[in-house]
Nucleic acid binder design. Sequence first.
DNA 1: TCTTAAACAGATTATTTTATCTGATTAAAG
DNA 2: CTTTAATCAGATAAAATAATCTGTTTAAGA
Lengths: 145, 145
Amino acid sequence: MTVIFSKKCEYGLQAVLFLSAKGTGEVVSADEIAKRLNIPKEFVSKILQSLTESGLVSSRKGKAGGFSLAKHPALIRLIDVVAAIDGLAIFNSCVLGFPNCSPDHPCPLHEKWGQLRSSAYSMLTEQTLDQLKEKTLNKIAHLEA
Amino acid sequence: MTVIFSKKCEYGLQAVLFLSAKGTGEVVSADEIAKRLNIPKEFVSKILQSLTESGLVSSRKGKAGGFSLAKHPALIRLIDVVAAIDGLAIFNSCVLGFPNCSPDHPCPLHEKWGQLRSSAYSMLTEQTLDQLKEKTLNKIAHLEA
DNA sequence: TCTTAAACAGATTATTTTATCTGATTAAAG
DNA sequence: CTTTAATCAGATAAAATAATCTGTTTAAGA
Ligand code: SF4
Ligand code: SF4
C-alpha cells in the first residue's frame, strides 16, 4: 500500500473540516463526528484530544460537551493539522527512501520530486479551513452514496 | 508518520535503479545489493523475487547467481516498479481518505490535489531507469556519508 | 441531588507492515 | 561428486499503526 497521510491524519483533517463546516463556535460531539464521517468514534476522539493539546481544537467536557475549533477557520491551515499529527518530515525526506536527503547528495529524483513536494507544501500552506467550507459540505452531504 | 511509497516499494526502486546503474546484463546478488544500499538482505531478496514474477527483473539461481534487469533500462518506467509493488490505487483515491473518490463527489481538495497527483503520475511514467543512471551512480557513491 | 452524556487517560487488542528465519532447490567450480 | 553460494518458498517474529476497551472526571438538565 501507498499512503500520503496516516489514517490518523486523514481522520484529523476530515474532522477539522467538518467542524469548520459546522460553524466556528459550534460544539460537536465525537459521536456525531464519527457517525457523519463513518469513522471509528474512539479513534477520532483520541485524535481530536491530541489536536486540543496542539491548540487547534478546543473541547468541553460533560453533557452537551464536544469539540470545536479553537480559532477562526481562516486561521487554520491544512498544514497546521498535518504538522500536528504526522509532522513535516515528509517534506524533508527522500521519496526513494535514500538517507541523507539534501541538495548536496541528491537522489535520482531530487529535481523532479522536489518540485512536487514544494507544490504540495504550498498547497497545504495556502489552503485554510474557511476556503474549503462549501466543498466540505457538499462532500459530506453525498457521503452515504 | 507519512509515507509516499511503502518500504517495499522504496527498496524495490532503489534496487532496480542500482541494477540499471550496474549495467543491463550484469547479475548482482541480493547480498551485494543489500550491502551497497544498506537495506536488509532477506527483505530486498523477497522484493526482487516478486519483481521477477512481475517480469521486470530476472534471476539466476545457484552459485554466482543473482538478479538483473529483465529488459533494457529504457523500457522500465518507474511507474512499472511502483505498480508492481504498491499498486496504482494511490493515483485513484482521496488524499483525505474520503470514500467514493470521483469528480462527481469531489472532496474539498480534489481540484488542487488532483493536479499534483497527475503530475506525480506523469513523472513516474516519463522517467525510465536509463535516464537516471548518472544520478543513481552519484547518489550511491556518496551513500556512506 | 441524581442521572446522563460527554471528554479524558491509560491500557489493551487487532491488524498491517517490516523484517528474519529455516529449509529446499539450483548451479558453478574445484 | 562434493562443496559452496546463490535463489526461492513458506513460516515466523518484531515493530508500527489502527482500533477498542475500561474506568474516571466533568458538567448539563431533570
Ligand atoms: S530526491 Fe534526493 S534530495 Fe530529493 S528527496 Fe530524494 S534523496 Fe532527497
Ligand atoms: S479530492 Fe475528491 S476526488 Fe480528489 S481524491 Fe479527494 S475525494 Fe477523491
